[in-house]
Design a binder for these strands. Structure first.
Length: 617
RNA sequence: GCCGUCGUAGCUCAGUGGUAGAGCACUUCCAUGGUAAGGAAGGGGUCUCGGGUUCAAAUCCCGACGACGGCUCCA
């Protein structure tokens, strides 16, 4: 354990040192360069620099890496020393390093506040201990000196394996108004092998990119005429959407959620009342009537609409919880630069549910939703981890403190009851209530934010929702918001990459492909009979009777990642038995053999129903 | 919105100032093929759009739009 700790500390120092070496190399190659900050990030490091008038590109990486390697080969020792902050400011001035100078000035003025701000943004090169900042540390290697907190390894020869991976623009200190610098990213590992593994993972990720697979597997498209961030789903992609949505719904319908339906637009007052208008008005799409002077807003979320269904009747404590479920599109006018594939779109389909419950029902509701989320992510083969997001002691939260304490306890109890891997964080709650955020790890080890369960003490009050309690007085319900998939689009972007497009039978757009060996009438009609039987069992099947070679048709089925293909010819017609070709990732019975068409279809239908990714064939 | 890169046929991409190309896909014909590409012929492009430079622009310059990598943002 201690050893592990040392290793990760050492890796951190290596990456820090690499950032320093990158700065050394850039300073040698581009005299007059102005340095920003160079922190360690996940898997590596970056350095923000300002090279007046010069634009770095990946073509420059060769030279820069060669220069870094030279410095590493020189094995210069890193020498740490400190300076008073005033001297350091003078040093920055003399060395024409205005960004460092600005940071130092801020550090002197605001001390740990600035240090904290920098830490938070992973820019914490200069962070120092508690209290007032009086001196700062420098590192020197050869004739290069840089202001840096460290730690560093003892010499430039001990930094392990590295690679520069990209360069991009980044605002100085992450603030939109500030000048933009060039951020050079690198990755660093203790050994060559780990570096190679990481680069291989990046390669694999590129191959699985959902945008690439989306096109290859004919799942979704974009059209310039429709607009950016507005994906159009093809028949195959629509099957994916509907299957995951159906599952997400079923998992909650089991717990008493009922489907509701709402329009896509609403009067603006709805959001003025909910409070969203003031906060997010700029991101809402507006719709103007050409008949009247009415103005509408396209919904950016469904909760306010749902409150109005709850509010339509007088409710008793006996009626609660009342649970609504709806998978519907919401629209948010994201800035264009933020859009990307399906991960970030402007038409977002949410599998949203809202339970209205009493205070003492919170734990039960959370319990159900956690069980649903656990089952869903288990089915898709992703590891789940949750963050319990609590309030902190500030007064930025609405609702009574006792309610918060009780709610947070109930959240935690439910998370523990479901054996979920969790961590707690104060200050991460929404102002309207604590929440549980779910992170799923995909097949490449990347973590994605997916489901969310949120308690809401505020919206019911804003909409004056109430139920009558045992004493006959009006009481405000608590709303439990939940999305299991999050947004269907984002979920699919993750899921497509997780599976590399090899979807299990239950979601596969095409489950069975029947490949005719020739164009003869009896071959085609035999295939069609099988197709009809499959359809009756609810299976998605396609007959490929194209006038192509069998080899070609097999290849096409493989390229489309169809789970089962069956060649139909003389033999099958005579025996009524088939030997399915099973997609390679699907676990298959070692002594699998020919079976009747009916047996085969029944088996596949069962696999689809039980949502497994193995076959008993 | 900001910085950068890119935009050629349905797809993947060649083509750097002188009449627009390949493979796959598509259509037709031949072949009736047994588990990852049978053969031949044919159709298909205002080179994203708009301006400019030039005798001449896919190619050089400016602008718009779109995609991508980041930054900022993400109820």
């Amino acid at each position: 354990m201690a050893n592990n700790h040392n290793q990760s500390d050492n890796l951190h120092a290596m990456r820090h040192s690499l950032a320093h070496i990158l700065a050394t190399a850039l300073t040698r190659l581009y005299p007059g360069i102005k340095l920003g900050v160079g922190p360690v990030v996940e898997k590596g490091f970056y350095y923000d620099v300002d090279i007046a008038g010069q634009q770095l590109s990946e073509d420059d990486f060769g030279r820069i890496q060669a220069e870094m390697q030279k410095i590493i080969d020189e094995n210069q020792s890193f020498e740490r020393f400190t300076m008073s902050i005033d001297k350091a400011i003078a040093w920055a001035g003399q060395n024409n390093q205005p960004y460092k100078e600005e940071l130092l000035n801020d550090l002197r003025r605001a001390g740990t506040t600035v240090a904290k701000e920098l830490n938070k943004d992973e820019m914490g090169t200069f962070a120092v201990g508690d209290g007032k900042v009086e001196e700062v540390s420098f590192y020197r290697n050869g004739d290069f000196t840089d202001l840096c907190r460290g730690p560093h390894v003892e010499s430039t020869g001990k930094v392990g394996a590295f690679r520069l991976i990209r360069v991009s623009g980044a605002y100085w200190r992450g603030k939109e108004g500030n000048p933009q610098m060039q951020r050079v990213y690198g990755v660093g590992f203790a050994t060559d092998k780990e570096l190679r593994q990481y680069l291989a993972m990046l390669e694999e990720a590129k191959k699985r990119d959902h945008r690439k697979l989306g096109q290859e597997l004919d799942l979704f498209v974009f059209s310039d005429l429709v607009g950016s961030g507005l994906p159009l789903f093809t028949p195959r992609g629509t099957v994916l959407r509907e299957e995951v949505m159906r599952y997400s719904n079923e998992l909650r319908q089991r717990f008493g959620f009922q489907k509701v339906s709402i329009p896509h637009i609403t009067k603006q007052e709805l959001y003025e009342k909910s409070g969203h208008w003031a906060k997010f008005g700029g991101e809402l799409f507006l719709v103007k009537s050409q008949e009247t002077s009415d103005r509408f807003v396209i919904k950016p979320m469904s909760c306010p609409h749902h409150t109005q269904i709850f509010a339509s009747q007088a409710r008793s404590y006996r009626d609660l919880p009342i649970r609504y479920l709806e998978t519907t599109a919401v629209y948010r006018d994201e800035k264009t630069g933020e859009l990307g594939g399906l991960s970030r779109v402007r038409s977002i389909t949410q599998d949203d549910s809202h339970a209205f419950c009493r205070q003492d029902q919170i734990e039960g509701e959370i319990n159900n939703l956690l069980a649903a989320a656990t089952q869903l992510y288990q089915s898709v083969g992703m590891q789940l981890r949750v963050r319990l997001s609590y309030r902190d002691s500030s007064d930025a939260y609405l609702g009574s403190p006792e309610l918060w304490v009780s709610a947070q306890q109930q959240l935690k109890a439910a998370v523990e009851a479901n054996n979920l891997d969790y961590f707690e964080e104060e200050g991460e709650a929404a102002f309207y209530g604590p929440k549980i955020d779910f992170m799923a790890t995909d097949a490449l080890g990347r973590e994605h934010q997916v489901a969310t369960v949120q308690l809401d003490f505020v919206m019911p009050q804003r909409f004056e929702l109430s139920y009558t309690n045992e004493q006959g007085s009006a009481q405000s319900p608590i709303m439990v918001h939940c999305a299991l998939l999050g947004s269907i689009e984002r979920f699919l972007s993750v899921y497509i990459e997780h599976t590399a497009g090899k979807f299990p039978v239950w979601v596969a757009p095409e489950q069975i492909r029947l490949i005719t060996v020739n164009q003869e009438e009896k071959t085609i009609s035999f295939a069609q009979v099988i197709a009809e039987k499959a359809f009756d069992l609810g299976l998605r099947v396609h007959v490929d009777n194209n006038n192509e070679s069998v080899g070609k048709k097999i290849r096409n089925a493989e390229l489309m990642k169809v789970p089962y293909s069956i060649v139909i010819g003389e033999k099958e017609i005579e025996t009524g038995e088939v030997v399915p070709r099973v997609r390679k990732d699907i676990e298959v019975n070692p002594n699998h053999e020919a079976r009747t068409v009916e047996e085969f279809l029944k088996t596949v239908a069962n696999e689809a129903k039980s949502r497994v990714n193995k076959t008993s064939l």
